[in-house]
């Protein structure tokens, strides 16, 4: 197993390298000029040229890429072109809100989606099933920002019990943290919940039609016991896959949610850096995201072997 994990981790490196190269080329060939943006609207040509020289933006592309890559290998992601702060510092400043938002969304969605999906499968074809799935389709169809603005209007402006925006760290206390997380979590979590609930339903429908389930029911096993002990584990592999692959969807949604609720996370950092062509920051963030996603996939692969001992690599 250790050898397998080691091989998979090493296998991520070429993937990340290719991603880095592609992103580097796209960014540098897209034509944006950070020097002009830094210099300001009324700067002279000489000002812009001096900044470009200073930042090394006029050097050959290959030289710029290799310099950056060598620095990354040494743990140095570079310095933001704009605020002259190390990219690593910027990412560290922003990683907590994004991580906490992602975690709360996953927890919220699992808590909501599993019972929804199981209930829909258990009562398949009844009004309960139809109502739950209609709710799931609605949640899946509504854009995150529409849900976000709606919640802000209802719970921050009309009945002001929750804040409009911002983020409080867990270090500030569970109360402030929870207050600031409720609306973003619901906004982003509904889409993910819908995805998960539909997958749970179809996975459970398949398991519930198996002979061993029918036998257990015939023997008079309690419904709760039947679902939690026998059905859930066997239905879990596709659900876990959906949780994992859904995180990619979540990362996209995080960008929007962080903007709507002014959460200072990685998503906003990425958008801001893109708008300003802040190449080192964009490259650093994408590398971190790529590494995270590859590791996540690896973790899910390993989890399969725990959930279903028949799966072996």
């Amino acid at each position: 197993m250790y050898a397998y994990v080691g091989r998979r981790v090493l296998g991520t490196l070429p993937v990340i390298l290719v991603i880095a190269l592609v992103i580097f080329l796209i960014l540098h060939l897209s034509g944006g000029d950070p020097a002009a943006i830094i210099a300001g609207d009324h700067a002279t040509d000489e000002d812009i040229k001096a900044i470009r020289d200073k930042l090394g933006l006029d050097r050959p592309l290959a030289e710029q890429f290799l310099t950056w890559l060598w620095n990354v290998v040494q743990g140095d992601f570079g310095i933001s072109i704009f605020n002259r702060v190390p990219v690593g510092t910027l990412i560290l400043q922003r990683v907590e809100p994004t991580l906490m938002l992602t975690l709360t969304v996953i927890v919220f969605s699992i808590i909501l989606a599993l019972p929804m999906g199981i209930a829909a499968a258990w009562y398949a074809g009844t009004w309960i099933d139809r109502a739950l799935m209609a709710l799931a389709v609605l949640s899946f169809s509504l854009p995150v920002f529409v849900i976000g603005y709606g919640l802000v209007y209802a719970f921050s402006l009309q009945v002001p019990i929750l804040p409009v925006q911002g983020y409080r760290s867990l270090a500030d206390g569970i109360g402030p943290f929870a207050r600031h997380m409720v609306l973003p979590t619901i906004s982003l979590g509904l889409v993910y919940t819908a995805l998960l609930a539909r997958m749970t339903r179809s996975s459970f429908l398949e398991v519930l039609s198996q002979d061993y389930i029918r036998s257990a029911r015939a023997k008079g096993m309690a419904s709760f016991q039947l679902i939690t002990i026998h059905a859930l584990k066997n239905a879990s592999v596709p659900i876990v896959t959906t949780i994992g692959s859904g995180i990619a969807v979540l990362i996209g949604g995080v960008v929007v949610t962080e903007s709507v609720f002014a959460i200072p996370g990685i998503g906003r950092l990425t958008v801001d850096a893109l708008l300003r062509s802040d190449f080192p920051v964009i490259q650093g963030v994408i590398l971190v995201f790529s590494f995270f996603y590859v590791i996540l996939n690896l973790a899910i692969d390993l989890l399969y072997t725990v959930l279903d001992p028949r799966i072996r690599y």
Binding site: Y149, V152, Y153, S156, L157, V164, Q165, S259, V260, F261, A262, R268, V271, D272
Partner: peptide, 9 residues
């Protein structure tokens, strides 16, 4: 980043 959020805030 979002003017609508600033307005609400």
């Amino acid at each position: 980043p979002d003017p609508a959020t600033i307005m609400s805030a």
